[in-house]
Amino acid sequence: MLSIKNLTVAYDDTPVLTDVAVNFNAGKITGIIGPNGAGKSTLIKAMLGLIKSKHGTATYNDQPLTAVRQQIAYVEQRKDIDLTFPINVLDVVLTGTYGHLGLFKSPGKAEKQASLAALAQVSLSDFAKRQIGNLSGGQLQRVFVARAIVQAAEIIILDEPFVGIDLQSETAIVQILKQWRDAGKTIIVVHHDLNKVTRYFDELVILNHGIVAAGATTDVYNPTNISQAFSTDLSSVLFDQPEVPQS
């Protein structure tokens, strides 16, 4: 189990997350939802140690998360990637083996085989030699999912993986998520499109600077929690309820 305890993060003294405590279970796909600026990506980055937190801990089976880095695969938002970089699809996937290889070892035959297999899993075998700038957004996202496959991690974290991608890619990625879940891995997905929440996620963390609700999607995805985290209007549209006049 991945546990976060009393995590507080602030940017220049403006608190983004205050005393967040939440658990992510193995064998589940957990979605993190919340309005813009709720601290979803911040939560991920703080627990990975990519940004400093004021206090709090992140542990995996009682070990600090930073001590089990090899067990984590993180698929970042795509916007920061340099698409002109002289690297092809296969070589990007190969970088997923770097963490396990350690210093002074180059990827060999076994790593290349694993990368080709991962590319096949996301149906991109024909694109192995393409420079990454020549892919669509969805194809590129699948490349990074293939890299996560190669990492053979126990915890997989994806930040907004479905933004700006085609339906075929989205379906392919959801398939992979389900395979990971069935293999007992811990999967965390930052997500902002509420429409598919019930279809994609077994468990849900509703976030707005703090935890609004967390638990099985069927239990926590309800008008009360959504209106508390987002707005009453959004909640009434989503759940198709007439607005109840406040008395």
Partner: peptide
Amino acid sequence: IFFFKELLITSFDETFARTYGL
């Protein structure tokens, strides 16, 4: 030669390199 893959990954995707502990 010895740090080729580290130079590659820190130039291409620094955040990724940090997540695996480089």
